[in-house]
């Protein structure tokens, strides 16, 4: 039986090492401010300001920005922010 015992011990230790990660201490989680509706609005306004300075704004970029604004309004903030960032990225001149 010794072998069976040592075998299971190896397995338990193995899984435990993988699972046992440094536990973050009990300080409250810090909020990320770039995941908020305010940031979303900020991005929308920023996009509007940047695109106003451009002669031609790619249709795809504008569509992404619109979709991002809409998603934010629906409460899917991270998805919306992601779209808006993509829209801004596509406006970059050196792209």
């Amino acid at each position: 039986m010794k072998l069976v015992q040592s075998l299971s011990a190896i397995l338990v230790i193995g899984t435990a090492t993988v699972q046992a990660q440094p536990q973050p201490d009990p300080q409250p989680a810090i909020r990320v401010t770039s995941d908020t509706t305010e940031f979303c609005d900020h991005l929308s306004r920023y996009f509007a300001r940047i695109s106003a300075g451009h002669h031609t704004v790619p249709a795809a970029s504008r569509a992404l920005a619109d979709e991002g604004g809409r998603l934010c309004a629906q409460g899917l903030i991270r998805a919306g922010i992601s779209r808006l960032r993509m829209a801004l990225y596509r406006l970059r001149p050196n792209r």
């Binding site: 973050p24 300080q27 989680a29 810090i30 909020r31 990320v32 995941d35 991270r78």
Partner: peptide, 19 residues
Amino acid sequence: WPLRMAMDEDWDELRIERA
């Protein structure tokens, strides 16, 4: 700024809250 961060340890894991 995280509370417990002392400057003697410059790499860490941090719990955050995203949306």
